[in-house]
Design a protein around this nucleic acid. Structure first.
Lengths: 335, 335
DNA sequence: TTGTAAGCGTTATCAG
DNA sequence: CTGATAACGCTTACAA
């Protein structure tokens, strides 16, 4: 608990080196001018004492930590992990540390994390939580925490956003299917509380079908490979009429569950059943047939977010909005 | 709430509520005694002003942040992401924030991150970096940062460790193969710089074979699915003698690359080629045939690490070492 | 129950 | 070039 008790302080260094606090501070910050000889002396005693400046005290004095807060659903999903990994790379490059505020897909928790972000005195934040609406985001803005918000349009002074666009690609995919003579209805796998991204895709799915005046199905599934695999096995067994058509899952695990369940039910993909994954990762490549996906490179999104934030923090962010368009990547799971 | 505001301080709250700093502090910390009426008054003005205590200042005053530092290779790999996810869950439960110090598989960087951890004033640290040796870890100990170290034996006052044991399971797997009449040599896919865990497995692999006086192969591969898939396609094409036997990859992506390359080369798994993944994740289940793995649940490891650290921070950690034994999980990729 | 004041470990502004 | 000293925002004895 009081591991910090015996921390060597700048004061001790000063005393040991026979100089004042201020001089030591100048040495460690390499600013202001110090004689070569005293600099050496100070550096020597710093090394001897093993002194490391307290980031905390520095932060308090300078009014900036070099921390940026990251609000994300827990990094359990590959696409979130990829996103985080992208942030990570650029953060390192720009010399920021990352503090995680994980939210487990619940709005209340996300809100609570926003409070924490504010308290934690981060220099900026990247918010990728699917549950938060624009109003929630404004709160963070009102506290003057420069932020990049993912998949949420916000316009505020110190806030940039990155938005995903699945609309056209998904619409086109659906239209193509019917234009090419698709007859069996498409099925969308709904996952409870999986966030705004999925919700929007589902809306596009429904709308497009209603415009076309086509039949469609939405079925609910659990947000896990194993459960969905089991459920789909049953589903294909109990619903002979469902043994054809296109199935859409929102991420690779779900889509893979559909595909494997279909295959293991004696169906062939893509001849009988076609499968599409909305958030494709590299795991779409390892299943057979490879999954067709709507692809957005989440690591790139993470990098971009961190670049934008760094710009927001250092100068003016010129372009406060970035867009990532999903592109259809054809695998073997669709015709 | 609308306009950007400068940080509201405890002092401003005190003034607005007509009380002293100390009283406000008591209210926000719910300790000491405050009359119901003044408490209300203070709470009201806190709400009105939108005051959030500065974690920084609190940390400096109390001498502990509620941050714990996590040194990991970047969360690109599923097993690392799972580990992080496990930490995350328990950290939330115990009310700690996580600060990430990602290292990208290089010892120098890992060392640099240790420095940062020390400066950053975290209450404790979880160190899962495969590149660090025991001596490196001691450095963190010397700064009195209570830590849990993964896959590295350390004995120091404030340091606990979690170790993996692949030895027996892997040895047994190899022995079984030959006892059951395996003839074709086993092949181990070596990945440069993939860390101590892999290195140790490789050592076990080699040793066991030498004890048995059996032929074996070690081939190098890139740490990526796509590259390894391509390389293995070539390999199977150019080396007819290699179109049989057991192949061992250190994580699912690598093992899946072997398996898919074998299948796509017209080989059948497990009849011609058998495949084993050393660090199995749920992705071993989605490829066909399912991968046999040596399994350690990394999310559990993360949880355990965080539990141990919490204990280390609050009282005495009774059991300073935990062990996780790899268990062989048979899939369809081995006979 | 409440207020005063001394830290916590730095940086930064002045003088000297 | 160097040294006092006042911030930074909060906690916490100690007094009142």
């Amino acid at each position: 608990m009081d591991n910090l008790k015996d921390r060597v302080t700048i004061y001790q260094v000063a005393k040991a080196a026979g100089v004042s606090l201020a001089t030591v501070s100048r040495v460690i910050n390499k600013q202001g001018s110090v004689t070569a000889s005293t600099r050496e002396k100070v550096e020597k005693t710093i090394a001897e004492l093993g002194y490391k400046p307290s980031g905390l005290a520095q932060a308090l004095a300078t009014n900036h930590t070099t921390n940026i807060g990251v609000i994300i659903p827990s990094p359990n999903y590959v696409y979130i992990a990829n996103f985080l990994s992208g942030i990570t790379q650029i953060a390192k490059e720009k010399n920021y540390n990352l503090t995680l505020f994980p939210t487990a897909h619940s709005r209340d928790e996300a809100l609570e994390m926003i409070e924490k972000v504010i308290s934690s005195h981060v220099d900026g934040a990247i918010v990728f939580d699917d549950q938060l609406g624009p109003d929630d985001i404004k709160k963070i803005a009102s506290y003057n925490v420069p932020s990049i918000v993912i998949d949420n349009k916000v316009s505020a002074e110190k806030i940039g956003d990155i938005r995903f666009n699945y609309d056209e690609a998904l619409r086109r995919f659906i239209l193509d299917y019917y234009e090419k003579g698709g007859v069996a209805p498409m099925t969308f796998l709904h996952v409870h509380n999986a966030g705004r991204l999925l919700a929007r895709c589902e809306r596009i799915f429904v709308q497009t079908h209603e415009e076309l005046n086509r039949e469609y199905k939405v079925i609910s599934c659990d947000d896990s490979y194993t459960r969905t695999y089991g459920d789909m096995m049953e589903y294909f067994r109990d619903h002979p009429e469902a043994r054809k058509g296109v199935y859409i899952g929102y991420r690779d695990s779900i889509a893979a569950a559909i595909e494997n369940a279909a295959t293991d039910s004696g169906l062939s993909v893509p001849e009988d059943i076609e499968v599409l994954s909305l958030v494709g990762t590299k795991y779409s490549q390892i299943v057979r047939p490879k999954l067709s996906t709507m692809h957005i490179d989440m690591a790139e999104v993470g990098k971009r977010a961190m670049y934008m934030l760094a710009e927001l923090l250092s100068k003016e962010l010129i372009d406060k909005s970035a867009h990532f368009n999903a592109t259809f990547v054809k695998g073997g799971s669709t015709k």
